[in-house]
Simulated scan of single mutants.
Amino acid sequence: MSGLLILRPDDAGQVATLHAKCFDDAWSAASMRDLLKDPNVLTLGIQSDGQLIAFAMGQTVAGETDILTIATDPDLRRQGLASQLIEALVKRMGERGVMRITLDVAEDNVAARELYRAHGFVEDGRRPRYYKAARDIPVDAILMSRFLGIAR
């Protein structure tokens, strides 16, 4: 397994493939390439034997970073990969002067909500019926955030 790396536009195919393995409403390789080209987006990844096994993507706007997505190969979950990515993203954003990191997560994704709470994120809002892909009944998005530094 390799250490943390910054993913680039050339990695869009692997990023999209892993995202599709993890989410019913996967983003296309073209969308991933556009995001990976964006200077406001930082995407950190972890590879094993040359294959991407986990990544986290954050977009910084107006001094805040929104975690757009985190994906870990379903066969490799619960091994600390997402935790490693979250902490690395938080550290890098703090070094860049970001004061707050936000995200949203499906209300029924209990494992992800617990993961984010374990990393200091608190629930601070809700978007009703936000998640609809591959669901009979739409699910609310839970908004979460973590403040960095002292200012709030």
Rank of each mutant, 00 (worst) to 15 (best):
L143I: 01
R77K: 04
Y116L: 01
S28R: 07
A133Y: 01
G80V: 00
D108P: 01
M99R: 15
L76N: 06
R92I: 07
Y131N: 04
A88I: 05
P128L: 08
V90D: 10
M93I: 10
L36M: 01
D73N: 07
T17V: 14
D66F: 07
R127Q: 06
L18A: 03
R113S: 03
K37C: 15
R113E: 03
D25P: 07
G125K: 05
T17F: 14
R78L: 01
R129H: 10
F147E: 08
Q59G: 12
A71V: 06
L52W: 12
A16P: 10
G80E: 00
T60Q: 13
D136H: 11
D24L: 13
D108I: 03
L35V: 11
T69P: 03
S31P: 02
D10S: 14
K132L: 09
E107D: 12
G45I: 00
M144T: 02
I86T: 05
P138D: 10
I86Y: 04
H19P: 06
K91A: 15
D75I: 05
A111K: 07
S83M: 00
V98W: 00
T65G: 12
R129L: 03
L115I: 04
G50R: 07
Y116M: 01
L143Q: 02
N109M: 05
R117Q: 10
I142M: 03
P128R: 15
D73V: 03
V90Y: 07
P39F: 03
I70T: 12
D10N: 12
I46L: 14
R117V: 03
L81K: 05
I142T: 00
A71R: 05
M144Q: 02
P138M: 01
R92L: 12
A106L: 00
H119Q: 06
A141V: 01
V61Q: 11
K91F: 12
L103N: 00
R129T: 04
L89H: 13
A82Y: 09
D38F: 09
V90N: 03
L36Q: 02
T60C: 13
R92M: 11
I46Q: 12
F147W: 11
L148R: 11
I53D: 12
R96T: 04
L42S: 11
A133T: 10
L148W: 04
K21F: 10
D73E: 08
Q51E: 14
F121E: 02
D136L: 07
R135P: 03
I142G: 01
I101T: 07
A30Q: 14
W27M: 05
F147H: 09
T60L: 09
A134T: 06
H19Y: 06
D75T: 15
F147Y: 12
T102L: 10
C22V: 15
E95Q: 15
L115S: 07
Q59I: 15
A29G: 07
A20H: 14
E107N: 06
D25I: 06
K21N: 15
A133Q: 08
L103C: 02
G45Q: 02
A62S: 13
L18G: 06
N109L: 03
I137N: 13
V61I: 15
E95M: 11
R77Q: 10
Y116H: 05
A82G: 11
P74R: 11
E107P: 02
R113W: 00
E123V: 00
I86R: 05
V15H: 10
G120E: 08
A12R: 09
I86W: 00
I67C: 13
V98S: 09
L103M: 07
L68P: 06
L115K: 08
I150A: 14
G13K: 11
Y131H: 04
D104M: 02
N40F: 15
A134F: 11
